[in-house]
């Protein structure tokens, strides 16, 4: 039976641990720089707590990295060089050279490295991409997507050095999906607003040009002081238009006392986190080609880094070809 080790015991570590259990996969080990968090997650998952990354790698067949972004590189290299396949949360890394090290290590050791760009597994996004890919809207011309919510809870997200802020941590979802639908990005221009306070906010509006000629508007925000989050995507082409407005499209919902609203989402079959991990498991055990490759993760990282540069300088940034 496959043994998974989860690295990082924050929100995403818990999310993945629950899905692995649903998939009948043994979460054998947990490692976190915070022993208290590691202990909590290990108890929830029925796993052992490891003292070190090396310790975890020795006990498992697959390493699932859910740690803060700056830790990804060293943790992934350790696992890959020990021949352990890796699933790594997005963004792949904080800097391009780190991401490149990871991709090269995977290629040199012929060990799978999967990047958890989970948006590709949201059923409405998957369906929209399928329509675009089969030519239902013709050639894409104008792409738009939005992902706006409140500020994330954990401290490291608001530390630019650690997370890259909303452009690297959140907007990368949108860049990855845009690239999946419309191909490579040629240049990107970003305006960003940031305001400190409680709650503070950070919001970015990107305008991009794709190599294929299409243009795109991409929005990401940790900026809604209240109310529901916004997720929206549409692609207009020379043969039609497809749009997704919001993700709250349940086929069953209800309201009951004493909760103000009690909804019944279509889970678990549509749960994107479950779909994602099931897919990676399928890739690992059956050799199915991954829907999102390590190089896809690197490409999304490079667009986000260009976007950060544009936001900082106030100028459009043309993307460089990625090194092999």
């Amino acid at each position: 039976m496959l043994r998974v080790g989860i690295v990082g015991a924050g929100g995403m570590g818990g999310t993945h641990a629950d899905r692995w259990r649903q998939l009948g996969v043994n979460v054998a080990a947990v490692y976190s720089r915070s022993p208290a968090s590691a202990k909590r997650l290990a108890e929830r998952a029925g796993a052992a707590v490891c003292e070190s990354m090396a310790d975890l790698v020795a006990q498992v067949d697959l390493v699932d990295i859910c740690s803060p972004t700056t830790a990804h590189r060293d943790q992934a290299l350790l696992a890959l060089r020990a021949g352990r396949p890796v699933i790594c949360e997005k963004p792949l890394a904080r800097h391009l050279d780190e991401g490149l090290d990871m991709v090269r290590a995977a290629e040199e050791t012929a060990t799978p490295l999967y990047v958890a760009h989970v948006v590709r597994f949201f059923p409405e996004y998957t369906r929209l991409h399928a329509l675009v890919a089969e030519g239902a809207i013709g050639r894409p011309g104008v792409y738009r997507s939005s992902r706006v919510g409140g500020m994330p809870g954990q401290g490291w997200f608001t530390d630019d050095e650690a997370s890259g802020g909303v452009i690297l941590d959140l907007m990368i979802h949108e860049f990855d999906f845009a690239r999946w639908c419309c191909g490579e990005v040629e240049r990107v221009f970003v305006r960003q607003a940031r305001w400190p306070g409680t709650p503070g906010g950070e919001h970015a509006l990107a305008v991009v040009r794709f190599v294929g000629g299409a243009i795109g508007h991409i929005e990401a925000g940790w900026s809604r002081a209240a109310g529901p989050r916004l997720t929206q995507v549409e692609v207009a082409g020379d043969g039609g238009l497809v749009e997704v407005r919001g993700t709250a499209a349940y086929t069953l919902q209800g309201y009951a006392r004493p909760d103000k609203a009690l909804w019944f989402p279509d889970q678990p079959p549509d749960d994107p986190y479950l779909m994602q991990l099931r897919h990676f498991l399928d890739c690992l055990t059956n050799g199915t080609p991954p829907l999102v490759t390590a190089r896809d993760g690197l490409a999304a990282l490079s667009i986000s880094l260009a976007a950060l540069e544009s936001a900082a300088t106030g100028w459009p940034v043309t993307l460089e070809p990625l090194p092999q």
Binding site: V142, F189, R191, L205, V207, I215, H217, E219
Partner: peptide, 17 residues
Amino acid sequence: AGLLSLRLSNGVVATLD
């Protein structure tokens, strides 16, 4: 097709499709 990115004199950043 047009996507405009605007900076307003009051500091607001804006886009218009």
